[in-house]
Design a binder for these strands. Structure first.
Lengths: 163, 163
DNA sequence: ATCGTTTTGTTGACACGTCAATCATGCAAC
DNA sequence: GTTGCATGATTGACGTGTCAACAAAACGAT
């Protein structure tokens, strides 16, 4: 139907293919490394990392979800599993009876402290070390522009559309 | 413990943060667009796209899995759902009694033909249009290098390690 | 021919994500 | 203060992914 679609030429297909492969492969490799070295999944690491940046390892669930740009239910499901694993605890919130404070247990602290070096090393060895300075800067500007473009198209993240 | 970890400085954190955000956000936006415009999930689109490149829309399941670098079980689960939706059919293979030929139904053809223009447009508008020529080339070399680095580390894809 | 191994594919258990529905609480308007 | 709406969080259904176990056919060596 849409006969004026601007299809990709050969070179564009090559770029797109490489990018798309990396898109799925990078996260999956990162998760694999994390799981292998520290018995944490990628999403568990994200939550623990957020918590560890708070003063005492305690945050409102709402704030975690906002910081990670996650849906509430996604976080809720995950926290249930993490609580069962003993990594975090739900504590009722004194100032808002609806809310919960999520608090890292000592097992949670141990897990994130053990996992962080390997994770950072993964990023350094597979992102920064292989790239030249120019490539690193181009990567930053390219990712920023793509993200902005998707935002402009109203397709980014979990933010609800304007009616 | 690993006290010689080379942590990220501020600028590196900024690059890493932008890249990581794009990593999860891009795929999710793409899937959202696809689902909205054509009632196909991203993975369903991948399978149908592979099939549509075969002469008659028929491929061995094994070859689809290999082309997409997927685990067999992942494909098997998905094909079961896609067959239930009427997008593909499993046909017993004449030359190998273990295997199955996966064949697109006419509904499958219709779905992929309807979805393709919007998908290509998404890629063009959010990858190629926002990027300069230099950025496009840098993106290609950067993604290629990251992927190669991960491969060298033995963390890429579903290929089993060498015992 | 038969034995052991590889290949092909399925299944079940479980981790994970989205969506829609639900529920209680806070809050603002009146 | 009650009515109405927004907010914070949970739940259940279902699509999706991984992993390990399984079964059956193919294959290669003897």
């Amino acid at each position: 139907m849409n006969s004026d679609t601007r299809w990709l030429n050969d070179h564009e297909q090559e770029v797109w293919r490489a990018f798309r492969e990396l898109l799925w492969g990078f996260e999956s490799a990162m998760d694999r490394q994390l799981l292998r070295d520290s018995d944490l999944s990628g999403v568990e690491y994200s939550v623990l990392a957020s918590l560890s940046e708070a003063d005492d390892g305690v945050m409102r669930a709402r704030d975690i979800a906002q910081q990670l740009d996650w849906e509430r239910s996604r976080l809720s499901h995950l926290l249930k599993r993490m609580e069962a694993r003993g990594l975090v605890e739900r504590v009722t919130c004194a100032t808002d009876a609806r809310g919960f404070n999520i608090s890292m247990t000592s097992a949670g602290w141990n897990a994130i402290r053990q996992a962080a070096p390997g994770h950072v090393t993964f990023v350094r060895e597979n992102v920064f070390d292989p790239l030249s300075d120019a490539e690193r800067e181009a990567l930053l500007s390219a990712t920023t522009k793509m993200q902005q473009s998707i935002r402009d198209a109203g397709l980014w993240g979990n933010t609800k559309k304007s009616s």
